[in-house]
């Protein structure tokens, strides 16, 4: 099982976290089109390589984390608190 380096709790089993998904900007609800909105909802790049994603440390500090992870190797390049930018 992969370890995720939580900026608050240290390296922790991935099962302590909820995978939120690939991180991306939310379209402006006033001007968005169905195509754009549904791309935001459902279409993910799912690359084989580096990806920016959000994880929630459900069984730990309960903070949302911005994680940069290589899906090919599971190497985590950075993991910071989404709200504060705090890194370990």
């Amino acid at each position: 099982m992969m370890l995720l380096p939580c900026p608050w709790c240290g390296p922790r089993n991935a099962t302590e976290f909820r995978y939120v998904g690939e991180a991306g900007p939310r379209p402006d609800p006033a001007s968005t089109t169905p195509e754009e909105w549904r791309r935001y909802l459902f279409m993910h790049a799912n690359p084989c390589g580096p990806v920016k994603e959000t994880w929630y440390h459900r069984a730990g500090c309960r903070r949302y984390l911005a994680v940069e992870r290589d899906t090919a190797t599971n190497e985590v390049r950075s993991a910071v608190d989404s709200a504060t930018g705090v890194a370990r």
Binding site: R18, V20, R26, T54, R58, Y64, S82, A83
Partner: peptide, 13 residues
């Protein structure tokens, strides 16, 4: 609870 925290932490810190 997670939903509330999600919006507060990731969208409106």
């Amino acid at each position: 609870w997670e939903w509330v925290e999600n919006w507060l932490q990731t969208a409106h810190p």
